[in-house]
Design a protein around this nucleic acid. Structure first.
Lengths: 139, 139
DNA sequence: ATAGGGGTTCCACTGACTGGAAGGTCAATG
DNA sequence: CATTGACCTTCCAGTCAGTGGAACCCCTAT
């Protein structure tokens, strides 16, 4: 099968598939005319990669997951460890974004958004208020 | 002031400060020996940039925010628009990550994580279950 | 013969830095 | 006066996961 058909069947752009070959994730055969020739197994692997990437796994995670997938002697513990690591990373990102969101939403809320130049958003970026809510907070 | 002191005062690595000069965000003077010479205003701008970046604003957003900050004729509406755009982007990312998290957590939960090779995580990546919960679903 | 719709390689670019090499400057010390 | 060490400089390469484009080859149909 040529790359165009594989792109359709795997849902990945042809460019991405070539890139995945470049970095050794798939190893399609070559036809006499130099075209890549994909077997069913390759298409399957590419679809696997597409789904793993959609879940946010890094390419290196994908490489390891694929290796485990192809390994009859794997243990589910190995797979789970990768997934848990990624889950922790996702949680870290969500936390970070949620904190950003809270600050930003507060500032946006405080901003009139009118024709005047006064702006709490810029004021905060220029010099965020010290945390002196409580009288005893670091003096 | 030399770049090392500015790095300490602004909280940004010297490398980053040089990069910010490279892309035109700050324009420090130069001493006779070729060293960058930062004024108070430069330090102030770099701290501003550091806080804007910490809120996740892109460099281009930062550039525009800084321009507005320095512009007496700005309107808070312009600032608010940038912030709201960024807020929407953050929300988009949180949504995306939350969806990934849900799927991944379900799979991790279903995985025994033991010595056996059977693994629902790999099974899902290989071929996610079709959405045929309801009998009439595209069946 | 030519047009088109495939395919190929290779290079450059993205964002926002970061690491490192090779070398210049300066204050303090022996 | 030479040297050490901490600072500074520029420039190049790498990160991550692709994406865009140029220049060119292959195959089929007309």
């Amino acid at each position: 099968m040529n790359i165009g058909d594989v792109a359709i069947r795997s849902g990945l752009p042809a460019k991405t598939i070539r890139y995945y070959e470049d970095i050794g994730l798939v190893k399609p055969l070559r036809s006499a005319n130099g075209y890549r020739s994909f077997r069913e197994r390759d298409v399957h692997m590419l679809a696997f990669l597409g789904r793993a990437r959609a879940l946010g796994f890094s390419i290196e995670d994908c490489r390891n997951l694929l290796k485990l997938y192809e390994d009859d002697h794997r243990t589910s513990a190995e797979v789970k460890q990768i997934a848990e690591g990624h889950l922790a990373e996702i949680d870290r990102k969500i936390t970070e974004l949620t904190e950003m969101r809270a600050t930003l939403a507060r500032l946006v809320d405080a901003c009139a958004g009118d024709h005047r130049p006064d702006c709490p958003i810029l004021a905060d970026l220029a010099a965020p208020p010290a945390e002196t809510d409580r009288p005893d907070d670091r003096g």
